[in-house]
Design a protein around this nucleic acid. Structure first.
Length: 572
RNA sequence: CGAGGUGUGGCUCAGUUUGGUAGAGCGCUGCGUUCGGGACGCAGAAGUCGCAGGUUCAAAUCCUGUCACCUCGACCA
C-alpha cells in the first residue's frame, strides 16, 4: 500500500471531544470517523487491525472445537418473546417494525438465535457437546456511548454459545474457553489481561467472568488480590454481592471454614464469656458504646431473623449476657483478643454480615462497626464495602488487595438452562428422557479490544501496535522522494518485501521528513525503514522499531532479505 | 433519563455580550525556494455561520422551537 493513496487524513491537532488517548490517536491517525453517537466507520488501517484480531479469535475458537456460523442482525420480535427478553430487556434493545408492521429487533446478543439454530438439529445426546460462534455486528442502544471505540452502540463482536448435557461438561468447557481467551489476549499483544468474577446481569446464570485490561482509562472498578497463590479478582460492582452472600454460605461457623475455626463454645471460652447452649447468636459488643463488634451466628439461625440495629437499642442486656431473643452477648472491651486478630466488616450494613475473616486463632463474623469511633488497637479493621489498597482479601485473608480500573474486553458466562428451557430446546438422553441442554456463552468485543490495545500500547506520538495486529509489518519512509536513487531503492525494497509476503506501507510522498515520521508514528507500524540521501551515502537504509527497542543500518544490497528475516523472526 | 456545554470551509477555533460587507491557523490546489521530527514565499479554491420560524431597514449575533454532538451523572450484555 502506498501512503499517497491511503484514504484517511492524519493531523496534529488534538480533537476537542477526545478524552482517551486511544480515541485521540484513532481519530488523529485516520483510523476511524464518527458517523453518529456511538457509531463509527473505519478506514483501512483500523479495518486491517480488527481483521487480524478477528482471525486470531477465529483460530483460538476453532482450536477448542468451535463452529463458525452467522446469525442475523435483524430478528423477529417473536424469537425474543420466546425467551421472555423482548419485554425483560430495556430500551437497549432497538425495536422497530418492517413495512408490514411486524415487530423486529436488532441483535444485541444472540442467545435466542443460537438456540433457534441448534434446537431442532441437536436432538440426541450424541450430538453434544458443541460450540457455535460468529463474528458479527451488534447494536445496543446504550444510554451513553463514550471514549471513541471503547463504548459504542454499534460494534463487532465475537459471540460463542456452547451446549452441554451436564453441568460438569459445561464447567470443563468453560475452563477450556477461559484458557482460549488467555491465548487470544496474549496473541493480540496484551497478556496482562486478567479475568475477574462478574455479575451475570440479564444474561442469567451464576458463574461469570469478565476479562479486564487493567488501565486507568477503564470504566470498571476492580478488586484484585495480589497474592500470587490467590486468584481473588472481582468487579467492584459484585464485590459487595460476593460479600453479602458469604453469611448464607458460612452462617454456621461451627461447620464451615478453615481448620483454625473454633466452635462458638471455644470462642466464648477464649473470650471468657458464659456460653448459652440455646443461644442463636453470640454478639460481642464494645462495653462502653454497646455497638456490635463481632457476631457469631449459629447454624440453625436464619440470618434474616436478626435485625441488629433494631434490637440493639430496644433490648436491655441483662447481667447474664443473655437476652430474651436468645442471643448471648460478650464484651470486647476488657478482653484481650489475640494481637493478630483481624475483623472484616461492611459499614454499609447491607444484610446482616458481610464477611468472615481468618485470623490466626479464630474467625470473626462481624458487622456494624464504625472504625473511627470504635477502633480497638488489638484488632485490625477492614471495611470491604469500601475496599481499599492493602485491605484484606476475602479469599486468602492476606492484606494484598489492590484496587484498579479496567476495560472489559471479553466475558464468559455459565448460562445454565435459562434459554433452552424457555425456548424449549430438548434432546433425548441415554435413558430416553427429554432434557434441556446446559449452555455457556462467551463474548469478545473486537473494536473495543483494538482500542484498548491502543490505550495501553502508545507513546506521546501514537499507537505502538503489537506486530500480531499491526495494520502493516513494515513502514517505508522515502525521504526525498524526488531523489531518483532514493526512489529507486525504496521502490525496490517495497516490491521485494511484498514478494516476500511482508505487509508493507510505503510513504512515497514528497513531503518533509518531519511529516513522514509523525505520520509513521501515528500509524504505529512496528518496523520503520528509512531511505534517504543520508543513509544511501553510507550504502544503507535505517531500520528502527516503533517502540524504539531497535535501531540499525542495513546494507542496501541485502536490505530486503534482511528486513524480511527480521520481520519473520518478530512474527514467530 | 437528569445536569451542563457546543454547533461558523476538511480540522482546531475567533467573532455572538453591544445586530451593520464571513475571519485566522492548519489542511487542500498551482508555482518557486527548501528537505532527518509537522519549513517558507507568492497565487488560489473552499463556509446560504446545524435546521425552521420570528423581531428588525439589517441577524452568525436577539427571541421561540427543533435537531445533532460532547462532558458529568444515572444506566449497562
Amino acid at each position: 500500500m502506498k501512503l499517497s493513496n491511503l484514504l484517511g487524513q492524519r493531523f496534529k491537532e488534538k480533537p476537542a471531544e477526545c478524552k482517551l488517548d486511544s480515541h485521540v490517536f484513532l481519530v488523529r491517525g485516520g483510523y476511524i470517523k464518527q458517523v453518529g453517537e456511538g457509531i463509527f466507520s473505519m478506514f483501512m488501517p483500523m479495518k486491517r487491525i480488527t481483521k487480524k484480531i478477528e482471525n486470531i479469535i477465529r483460530e483460538e475458537m476453532d482450536a477448542i472445537g468451535g463452529q463458525e456460523v452467522m446469525f442475523p442482525v435483524v430478528m423477529p420480535a417473536t424469537l425474543w418473546e420466546e425467551s421472555g427478553r423482548y419485554s425483560a430487556v430495556g430500551s437497549e434493545l432497538l425495536r422497530c417494525q418492517d413495512r408490514g408492521g411486524s415487530k423486529l429487533v436488532l441483535g444485541m446478543t444472540h442467545e435466542e438465535a443460537a438456540v433457534h439454530l441448534a434446537r431442532n438439529t441437536a436432538s440426541s445426546y450424541i450430538n453434544f457437546p458443541f460450540m457455535i460462534y460468529q463474528i458479527q455486528t451488534k447494536f445496543r442502544d446504550e444510554p451513553r456511548s463514550r471514549g471513541g471505540l471503547i463504548r459504542v452502540r454499534e460494534f463487532t463482536m465475537k459471540d460463542a454459545y456452547s451446549f452441554h448435557t451436564s453441568q460438569q461438561d459445561l464447567e470443563d468447557y468453560y475452563k477450556k474457553c477461559h484458557k482460549a481467551y488467555e491465548n487470544i489476549f496474549a496473541r493480540v499483544g496484551v497478556p496482562e489481561v486478567i479475568s475477574v468474577q462478574s455479575d451475570s446481569g440479564m444474561m442469567g446464570g451464576k458463574v461469570a467472568h469478565e476479562f479486564m485490561l487493567v488501565t486507568d482509562a477503564g470504566e470498571d472498578k476492580l478488586v484484585v488480590c495480589q497474592n500470587e497463590e490467590c486468584d481473588f479478582r472481582a468487579n467492584m460492582e459484585i464485590a459487595e454481592c460476593v460479600f453479602e452472600n458469604e453469611p448464607q454460605q458460612a452462617a454456621d461457623l461451627t461447620k464451615v471454614h478453615t481448620p483454625n475455626t473454633k466452635t462458638i463454645d471455644d470462642i466464648c471460652k477464649l473470650l471468657n464469656v458464659t456460653p448459652d447452649k440455646t443461644a442463636k447468636a453470640v454478639i460481642f459488643l464494645k462495653k462502653e458504646s454497646l455497638e456490635p463488634v463481632i457476631v457469631f451466628i449459629r447454624g440453625d439461625l436464619d440470618v434474616n431473623d436478626i435485625k441488629l440495629r433494631n434490637f440493639l437499642h430496644e433490648e436491655v442486656i441483662p447481667d447474664d449476657n443473655t437476652t430474651e431473643t436468645g442471643i448471648t452477648y460478650g464484651f470486647v472491651g476488657p478482653i484481650n483478643l489475640t494481637a493478630k486478630a483481624t475483623v472484616l466488616f461492611d459499614s454499609s450494613l447491607k444484610g446482616l454480615t458481610n464477611l468472615v475473616c481468618g485470623a490466626n486463632e479464630v474467625d470473626y463474623h462481624y458487622t456494624g462497626f464504625n472504625p473511627e469511633r470504635d477502633l480497638d488497637t488489638t484488632i485490625e479493621y477492614h471495611d470491604l464495602s469500601k475496599a481499599f489498597e492493602g485491605c484484606i482479601c476475602p479469599k486468602c485473608r492476606k492484606k494484598t488487595i489492590r484496587l484498579c480500573r479496567g476495560i472489559e474486553v471479553g466475558n464468559i458466562f455459565q448460562l445454565g438452562t435459562k434459554y433452552t428451557e424457555s425456548m424449549n430446546m430438548q434432546y433425548i438422553d441415554k435413558d430416553g428422557n427429554l432434557q434441556n441442554p446446559i449452555m455457556g456463552c462467551y463474548g469478545i468485543g473486537v473494536g473495543r479490544l483494538a482500542a484498548s490495545v491502543c490505550e495501553v500500547r502508545h507513546d506521546d506520538y501514537g499507537p505502538i501496535w503489537p506486530i500480531s495486529i499491526a495494520p502493516w509489518h513494515v513502514h517505508i519512509c522515502a525521504i526525498r522522494a524526488d531523489d531518483p536513487q532514493v526512489s529507486e531503492v525504496a521502490n525496490n525494497i517495497y516490491n521485494e518485501l511484498q514478494k516476500n509476503h511482508i505487509e508493507v506501507i510505503f510513504d512515497d510522498r514528497d513531503v518533509r521528513p518531519g511529516v513522514m515520521f509523525n505520520d509513521a508514528d501515528l500509524l504505529g507500524v512496528p518496523v520503520r525503514v528509512t531511505v534517504s540521501p543520508k543513509t544511501l551515502k553510507r550504502n544503507a537504509v535505517e531500520v528502527v522499531f516503533r517502540d524504539k527497542s531497535f535501531s540499525q543500518d542495513f546494507p542496501t544490497s541485502s536490505a530486503s532479505a534482511d528486513i524480511t528475516a527480521l520481520v519473520n523472526s518478530l512474527l514467530s
